[in-house]
């Protein structure tokens, strides 16, 4: 990389600012590479970082994991925050349950009730979980956890084995619950200037609710719940 960079910089300096000379010479640059900066990424370099997985299964690696295997991994790495059965702990997320609650006053958005794609579960566990040691699990462990969490939500049976062929076939209950076209603007307020409404009533006030941390002095660690 550095020899490439130098070979461009040095002749540019010799040209005393003639702009043509500052362009990379086409002999070394690809048709796309006008500037030619950086190095061409090798397949091995890309493979090391290209961890994303799509709903159609693109990106899923080799490996596999069963529901039973997933239960053991879950107990070791996950249950301290998410609970043994994905019921959540405190403000750590609930992973299972909530079926049919999305239209309720207090909806429960879980993997089973809300997430549209099973691939996202594999992708997210693999890239960011467990919270305290991200990207530390093997592919087999991630497959096993994915199978276990899907089973906790009754989306797959107990004998399910997750791998790159089976996971893309899992249809999530709420897949069709999403609209991927932004319908906004969805309000139509008018720029009225005078006598815009008859009555104004205050329906709620934040005063005296004791939810607001202090906004003066040092950081307020007091209000915890």
């Amino acid at each position: 990389m550095f020899s490439l960079v130098r070979s461009f910089r040095y002749p540019a300096g010799l040209c005393f600012g003639l702009w043509m000379c500052t362009l990379p010479m086409t002999a070394t640059a690809e048709s796309a590479g006008h500037y030619g900066y950086g190095e061409t990424a090798t397949k091995a370099q890309i493979a090391g970082w290209d961890i994303d997985v799509r709903p159609d299964g693109k990106g899923l690696p080799d490996g596999s994991g069963s529901v039973d295997e997933g239960m053991k991994v879950f107990e070791t790495y996950c249950s301290s925050c998410h609970g043994a059965f994905g019921e959540g702990m405190g403000r750590y997320p609930k992973l299972a349950g909530g079926d049919g609650t999305l239209a309720d006053d207090r909806p429960e958005k879980t993997v089973g009730s809300y997430w549209p794609y099973a691939s996202t579960l594999w992708d997210y566990i693999h890239r960011a979980m467990p919270f305290f040691a991200p990207q530390s699990l093997s592919n087999d462990q991630v497959y096993a956890l994915t199978a276990y969490v899907l089973n906790l939500n009754y989306i797959v049976d107990g004998d399910f084995v997750a791998n790159k062929d089976t996971l893309p076939t899992v249809k999530m209950p709420n897949e069709d619950g999403f609209i991927w076209q932004d319908p906004r603007p969805d309000t139509d307020n008018k720029r009225c200037m005078h006598a815009c409404k008859d009555n104004v009533t205050v329906s709620d006030s934040a005063a005296n609710k004791n939810l607001t941390p202090s906004t003066t002095g040092p950081l307020d660690e007091g209000l915890t719940e």
Binding site: D52, V53, R54, P55, D56, L102, A103, P107, K109, V111, Y114, W115, P116, Y117, S119, T120, D123, Y124, A128, G177, F178, I179, W180, Q181, D182, P183, R184
Partner: peptide, 26 residues
């Protein structure tokens, strides 16, 4: 195609009163 990552499916989507959700409300 979009990748349907956690931050654009589970999070940062808007649940409506009828139980449907809006995605890609950027």
């Amino acid at each position: 195609k979009p990748w349907m990552q956690r931050e654009e499916t589970s999070k940062y989507t808007d649940l409506m009163p009828d139980g449907t959700a809006r995605g890609f409300t950027w």
